[in-house]
Each structure stands twice: as structure tokens, then as C-alpha cells.
Design a protein around this nucleic acid. Structure first.
Lengths: 152, 152
DNA sequence: ATAGTTACTTGCAAAACACAAGTAACTATT
DNA sequence: AATAGTTACTTGTGTTTTGCAAGTAACTAT
């Protein structure tokens, strides 16, 4: 048995039925689509944390898809949703520890994509830290300091 | 400019039009779906390398989807396709260097999934190497030694 | 009181997917 | 040489997901 990590603290697979017990297959059921990791990218690397921020982040996600993905991520406890301190209609989304743990996945996928696909870019400041000082980058992200403060 | 890696050696984004120049978004357009990385998992960790192997690998991919994904991966030069040495109808699929470079992405996603999602598993032998000796694991994979020889 | 913002929901067309069945080329069996 | 089986697909059909545009209720700013 390799099941050395306590199962209690883990989430359920969030699909009605998992297609297999393969860790990868289950992971892909959660984050294996074209939008989910982009939302997590915004939460991890930038100060975007509201519904409208994601809509206007430039990738062009439509609002019904965004609603669906946020709902799924909430159910799986990859993100949390808190009421905005001053604006009554808004909510603030944040990565949970399980969401923050996606850091290495994002880093590796970003690097692979950048190294492999033509005409793709990574913000210079993030790229330098990914290459030269990934540990510091991870610490910043774990303490929820956005690397990239955008005027939203 | 962070574009320090020669663009010449890179693949085109393989979509009719990329939605953005974000490396992550482009990467997700290639491998951000529920099947592609499972095919690559088989190619990387097991001796499955024929069409029929993927069909019967247990996840239940249907043949039209498999055909489509293999075609996409071929176009993007993540895999190659060679005629089978003895069986005239079969082909052998193999990861290219760009496909092999997905190793860290797969490892991190497998670990995240296993640590995060209940009742998921990773073959013991692979798990031990992922944790204790990832470098040796990577060398084995780069030299295309399957870790996991299955009776197919 | 009014206009604008925000986070959604709804409706509809298009695309992707799942499933079953079919097919042409090849291989193995007799 | 004939037949049966295998293999890698393709095709057809129904269902699900997605994309896009428009709408809406609650809230905020003027």
C-alpha cells in the first residue's frame, strides 16, 4: 500500500463517479480543462480575486463557465469564497492550502508551454523567479503575496 | 524580453488561433483535457505504445476520441508514429523529446492528485521513485525504459 | 431617484463527447 | 486458398458541454 497520506484530510473526487482510481485520472477530472487552471493562475500569481476580475482577465471566459468552475472549485475546497468587506454584492475568492499546493503543477506546465510552444510568454518577473529562485516564489505564494499587482 | 529560448525549435500552438499569448493558456489548449495526459502517462510510464493498448488501458477512452488526440499530439510533435516492425496494420507511438519534457508536469499533477483526492492510487514502484529518486526516474524515462512492463 | 455595476441566470446554436456499429487492411488458422 | 479473427480506424446518432448574447436582481455611486 502506498496510501501513506491520511485519507481523512483529502477531498472526494467531486465527480458523480470516478472513472478509475488512478490519481492522475482523478486529478484531470478536477483541473483537466481549458479554464480551471487559468482561474487558479490568476488567484496564485496576481491580485485578481473577484468574479469580474476573472471575466476581464483577457482570456475571454464566459460568465456561465466561470460560475460553473468556481462552484466546482469551491465544492472541492480548492478555493474559498468570502463576502467582500465593503461591497455587498462582491465576493473574494482565495486559494485554500490544497489550491496553493497546485503551485508546482502550474510552474511546470508554464515552463513546458513556454519552452515548447512558439510565441508564448511569461511575465518577466515571474519567469526569473521560476528559474532562479523557485523556493522564494513558493514562499511568497504560500503567504499569499501577489507577485503581480494589477490595477483592476 | 524573457524569450530566451530559441523560438525556432518550438511548435506552433496547434489551434487555429491561440486565445492569448499566455504560455499557460497555450499549454492548456494542447494538454488541458481529460484524455491527453492519460495517453502520455501510458507512453511515459508503461510499455503501452499501440492504439489498442490505449483503448484497453482501463480508463475507457473511445476510439474516435483516441484517434483525434493521437492526431493532435502528432501534429504538435509531442509523439511520433512508426510502423510496427512485424504487424503491418499496427503503429508504434513514442514520445518525442518535447513529450518526454512533460515528465515534471505529470509527476507534480500525479502527486497533487494523490495527496489531495480521496481513494486515489499510484503504483507503488513509481510512487517510491517519484518521492525518493526522481532524478533516476527521469533518466529511465528519458532513455525510454518503461517502469512498468505490462502484459499486453 | 436614477444610472451604473456586479454577479450571476437563461436561452439557443455550435462543438465536443460517448457509445455502438461498421469497414478495410492485415494476420492467423485450417 | 479460404475463412475467421484482429487491428486501426470511421461513421452515425444522441447527449453533454461550451460559447455567445441577452436578461435580471441586488447592490453602489451620483
Amino acid at each position: 500500500m502506498n496510501n501513506t497520506v491520511a485519507n481523512k484530510t483529502k477531498i472526494k473526487s467531486c465527480r458523480d463517479e470516478a472513472r478509475s482510481t488512478c490519481a492522475l485520472a482523478n486529478g484531470l477530472d478536477l483541473v483537466g480543462d481549458r479554464w480551471t487552471l487559468l482561474i487558479i493562475r490568476d488567484l496564485m500569481f496576481t491580485n485578481r480575486n473577484e468574479f469580474g476580475h476573472f471575466v476581464h482577465s483577457g482570456e475571454g471566459i464566459s460568465t456561465n463557465i466561470l460560475t460553473d468552475r468556481l462552484e466546482r472549485l469551491l465544492q472541492c475546497e480548492i478555493i474559498t469564497k468570502l463576502p467582500h468587506p465593503t461591497h455587498g454584492k462582491k465576493n473574494i475568492y482565495q486559494l485554500t492550502d490544497q489550491g496553493l499546493a497546485l503551485f508546482p503543477v502550474l510552474i511546470e506546465l508554464i515552463l513546458w508551454s513556454y519552452n515548447t510552444i512558439k510565441d508564448t510568454f511569461v511575465p518577466e518577473s515571474v519567469y526569473q523567479m521560476m528559474i532562479n529562485d523557485r523556493e522564494t516564489l513558493y514562499q511568497k505564494i504560500k503567504t499569499r503575496q501577489p507577485l503581480f499587482v494589477l490595477d483592476l
